[in-house]
Design a binder for these strands. Structure first.
Lengths: 235, 235
DNA sequence: CGCGATTCTTGACATGGATCAAGATGGCGC
DNA sequence: GCGCCATCTTGATCCATGTCAAGAATCGCG
């Protein structure tokens, strides 16, 4: 059952770069037309090809963007709160290129795309924020293409682990998603992810279940060769 | 030797969606600070990692965007006139993620990034155009990722050929770039591109040199399974 | 807690694609 | 038009990765 946005949810949204600079009157009118809905895990939120009726904002939980073709499926991105997804489709009033499903119990805000576009036409600060956001998204996908085309599976895993490791701060962290999804995201099969993990053991990587320990960053980095021009994006 | 933009060059630019709607005064001021330069083939225009000092506009010729890592190189996109490239880096004032080189003798307009950003802050119509352009770019890269992760090399080639075929209109067309670059763009080696071409012969594809003939679109389409959600982008 | 379903791992094998090497083709400048 | 150089093709081989199958570990749920 869709519900109106609560005040605290609006506040959280307002902190996002995308909505921080827009005029109060526009933000309020957007919030008045927004819905908030709770979903259980594993629910399909949108399907590729559908018209982009709503800009989605993940308030809580987790979601996966994925794509399919000819019976095959691949994980394109993982969305963590608080962030929007499918902004480009909304901006262009074009069909979704990716499907989305919840990974956990999730709270999602739905902003009607027509309202977003209307306000983006009349609020220069908002359209500037959208530019920054879209440019960011674009650069993330380019980086992802670079890792896919220039690195082997094991190298992609190594760099992924280093990113997680540096985000976490100290020695150990947990994989934020199931291994089969991670494998798909990294462009390999679950079987090959298992083998790639083993191949990284000599570099000080220990994985037990979803817990990862990295003994020494420098050893792994010699293999992974992370660079700001590919690896500085989150997730 | 950099030259000021000529009037006819400005006119051509003005026809681009990106610059069509901006205010005259802003467009004129952008043109006054623009340079036009001619380059021979094979010249490096920008290198990944460099600060994005200029928004580039290809007026004539052809350019390749490519990326490197650890001694490997891959072709990311081919730019045809008249179009801009590296808009996202300019928008975010961030380093280039890709390098660019000329493929043919090319005429290129250089718009100082600071000026582009300044005008994008003060001209709502321009920033709306940038939103549309960036959303388009984003969607192109997402489509490219989908084809890379969901299709085999031969399938990618088949869909590429169908796109070219439908752009050209009738039976025959010429490959717009060397095969080795096409191979890299499609994510394979030149050797494998040769073999993939042979594998498509039974589907009515004939390639002699750079000339391609496709006997019957339907036969090839049964293999390629093109879809608007991956294949409608140009190049 | 225990059972069933899913996910994960491992091994054996198949295959797509890369690499290496050599020869054919083609474009370009003299 | 000839010769040179780069590109392209082809075949042989190798390697990375996908597939299939079976067993182990894990998770969710009653």
């Amino acid at each position: 059952m869709p519900l109106r946005a609560r005040a605290d949810e609006s506040c959280e949204l307002r902190k996002l770069e995308l909505f921080a600079d827009m005029q109060d009157v526009h933000f309020d009118s957007l919030m008045r037309r927004a819905y908030v809905q709770n979903f259980p895990p594993g629910i399909d939120l949108i399907a590729e090809g559908d018209p982009s009726d709503f800009l989605h904002v993940l308030l809580d939980g987790g979601a996966e963007l994925y794509a399919t073709w000819n019976g095959r499926e691949t994980s394109m991105a993982i969305v963590r709160p608080v962030s929007t997804f499918i902004l480009a489709a909304t901006a262009r009033d074009a069909p979704y290129l990716m499907s989305a499903r919840t990974l956990q119990k999730s709270r999602i805000m739905l902003l009607p795309s027509v309202d977003v576009r209307e306000i983006f036409d009349s609020d220069p600060a908002f359209s500037r924020s959208i530019v920054r956001e879209l440019a960011q998204c674009y650069r993330s996908v380019v980086k992802n293409t670079k890792t896919l085309k220039l690195r082997t599976g094991t190298e992609r895993l190594a760099n992924y682990l280093i990113r997680q490791y540096r985000n976490a701060g100290d020695a150990g962290f947990d994989l934020p998603i199931e291994k089969r999804r991670l494998a798909s995201y990294l462009g390999m099969t679950p079987e090959n992810l298992s083998r790639a993990i083993k191949a990284l053991q000599p570099y000080g990587v220990t994985v037990r279940g979803s817990h990862v320990e990295i003994a020494d960053d420098t050893d792994l980095s010699r293999l992974a060769k992370p660079t700001e021009l590919i690896d500085d994006f989150t997730f």
